[in-house]
Design a protein around this nucleic acid. Structure first.
Length: 553
DNA sequence: AAATCCCCCAACCGCAGACAT
DNA sequence: CATGTCTGCGGTTGGGGGATT
């Protein structure tokens, strides 16, 4: 028990020392006892709420009025709900927070039986969890008011209250939309669901060094618009496991026609990852790729393995039937990024590179990471009025379900290990603590449909909720207006890189370690992660249409 | 099994605004 | 207008307890 004597503390309008007929009463702090609760409850029953300071005078309760009010409001008042928030409540909180921001009391008014403090704690806990996992705070169908109607003064206030987001000085530089095929940071801020789709006409004959062509900038789009769009053509999945067809294939490529669409996700803004990840992620050593530096990006770069998470976990959607549609990632981000992560441990680097890569490549990285707004930095703590991030979960239900996480137990290849790691983080996101261990198994497989010698990676799930976790591919509905259609795969990538160059990004003047050749290698590495689907369903129409990334170079 | 780590949450503090006197 | 009270909010703290070492 802590007793505070005269003059200790200042309770805002009230004090910790209350005059009691000429004397002063030491006010107790700390946890309330049952006896205190009973005194408080009895007083309120008799006198009603309010006038909390008078309570101390009229009872033997040595608590300040503020403490009494808090105790009553948060624990003693009738009709209080106890226990965890229900799914509906969670959804409502997310939606309310999107509308109201950190107006806990107003949010509590919409949640009968719940207190503002409870909601605040829930949100802060959720915030930390999502921050730790690098997940966005809002599902795509929740567009916060302050994003729909940005208020400069409000934003300024938030900045002053240490609520700034990831803005980097560079990001304020104006972009010329016409000069860039992809949205500028400003555009992205107003674009809650941007994605860009590669449109390849003939992947096998594509040339990475194909001259760049103009692209259609992505257009702003609301989640409701997203959800109202018709699903695209089903595509086969190179991520499906030949061994286990029970899991949905990744409809990433369709080789049945010459219009192979696949959409690179624009991953959600990455919050500051846990230090354990930072140490690995930002490992600047030039040692061969291994688990500790497998995905290496520039410090503060929003591009990281999390990109893959957002990108690659989607195909494992439980509800996604095979051959549904291309992955389209709709996000609301302050940046766009595109990453190619090699799974190989040997990766040549040179000092000559296209200028458009300079500002987007991490020289010390063994991977190739490109992002359109490298100037964005990550903030340690997410601001309380978080600028919303919208990820591939197109509605709150999927979003929350995804927060609950999937259970995955084995996977192969380094990139997928990254995916797994993030997935494991998701695994622990829903109430439980994130598991700290994971088990990976490597299952090299022979793809008789594939000409190359790439091993298949088998993805198996020890515990897999096939009913509702993570958004389905059907939920990821692309929109023509927001996709970038390109002629070739290589062109797509090159153009994507070029976009970053045109988007007002700053080159640090360092020589990039990426060359066209390396880019090809990157794509090659990337391709190795997406072997052509050998499942019968994927080859029904054209058995020879397996997409081979090896054909790219 | 014990020590340690880490997460969650009740409770608190400080401040500001609204309102009543 | 000054003062006191109440309320709301952001931020923080510290203990409990589960997970991990």
């Amino acid at each position: 028990m802590i007793l505070y004597g005269v003059g200790t503390g200042n309770d805002g309008g009230s004090t910790n020392h209350i005059s009691d007929g000429g004397g002063r009463v030491a006010l107790k702090k700390g946890p309330w006892t049952a006896a205190e609760d009973e005194i408080l409850a009895a007083y309120v029953r008799e006198n009603g709420e309010g006038n909390w300071n008078a309570l101390q005078k009229h009872t033997c309760l040595a608590r300040c009025g503020k403490s009494c009010r808090l105790r009553w409001a948060n624990h003693l008042r009738p009709n209080l709900k106890k226990g965890s928030f229900t799914g509906d409540e969670e959804r409502l909180i997310i939606q309310l927070h999107a509308q109201l921001g950190n107006k806990w009391a107003r949010m509590a008014a919409q949640l009968p039986g719940r207190t503002d403090n409870e909601i605040k704690n829930y949100w802060n806990t959720r915030l930390k969890r999502l921050q730790r996992q690098g997940l966005p705070l809002y599902p795509p169908d929740v567009i916060p008011n302050h994003q729909l109607h940005p208020h400069p003064q409000h934003q300024h206030q938030q900045q002053n209250q240490h609520q700034q987001m990831y803005f980097h000085p560079h990001s304020s530089q104006p972009n010329t939309p016409s000069s860039s095929p992809l949205p500028s940071p400003t555009q992205l801020n107003a674009n809650p669901s941007s994605s860009f789709t590669f449109h390849t006409t003939n992947a096998s004959t594509a040339n990475l060094l194909h001259p760049l062509s103009p692209h259609t900038p992505t257009t702003p789009q609301t989640p409701s618009q997203l959800s109202s769009r018709p699903p695209p053509q089903p595509l086969s999945s190179p991520l499906s496991s030949p061994l286990n067809n029970q899991y949905p294939t990744l409809p990433l490529f369709n080789n049945n026609n010459n219009n192979t669409n696949f959409t690179f996700p624009r991953p959600p803004p990455l919050l500051q990852p846990p230090s354990s990840l930072l140490a690995r992620r930002y490992n600047n050593s030039n040692t061969p790729l291994n688990y500790t530096n497998r995905v290496s990006t520039a410090p503060f770069s929003p591009v990281s393995r999390d990109s893959y998470t957002s990108f690659l976990t989607l195909p494992y959607s439980s509800s996604a039937a095979p051959n549904t549609q291309p992955i389209t990632y709709h996000t609301n981000n302050n940046y766009s990024s595109f990453s190619l992560n090699p799974s190989s441990s040997s990766y040549p680097t040179t000092t000559s590179s296209p200028s458009f890569l300079h500002s987007h490549y991490t020289p010390n990285s063994s991977s190739t990471s490109f992002h359109t707004n490298p100037g964005y930095s990550m903030k340690q703590d997410l601001p309380s009025n978080q600028i919303p991030q919208i990820c591939a979960f197109n509605n709150v239900n999927n979003f929350i379900d995804n927060e609950k996480g999937l259970h995955r137990r084995s996977i192969s290849c380094s990139l997928l290990e990254d995916v797994m790691e993030e997935a494991e983080a998701l695994d622990g996101g829903g109430g439980g603590r994130p598991p700290k261990r994971r088990q990976l198994t490597y299952s090299p497989l022979n793809n008789h449909h594939n000409n190359n010698d790439n091993d298949f990676f088998s993805v198996t799930f020890g515990q897999y909720d096939s009913s509702e976790n993570i958004c389905s591919l059907q939920d990821l509905k692309p929109k023509e207006g927001e996709t970038l259609e390109m002629n070739t795969m290589q062109e797509d990538i090159a153009k994507l890189l070029d976009w970053g160059s045109d988007s007002g990004e700053i080159s640090n003047g360092q020589s990039s370690a990426v060359t066209d050749e390396n880019l090809v290698l990157d794509v090659h590495q990337f391709a190795s992660l997406f072997p052509a689907d050998s499942t019968p369903a994927a080859n029904d129409n054209n058995d020879n249409n397996n997409f081979s990334w090896d054909d790219l170079d």
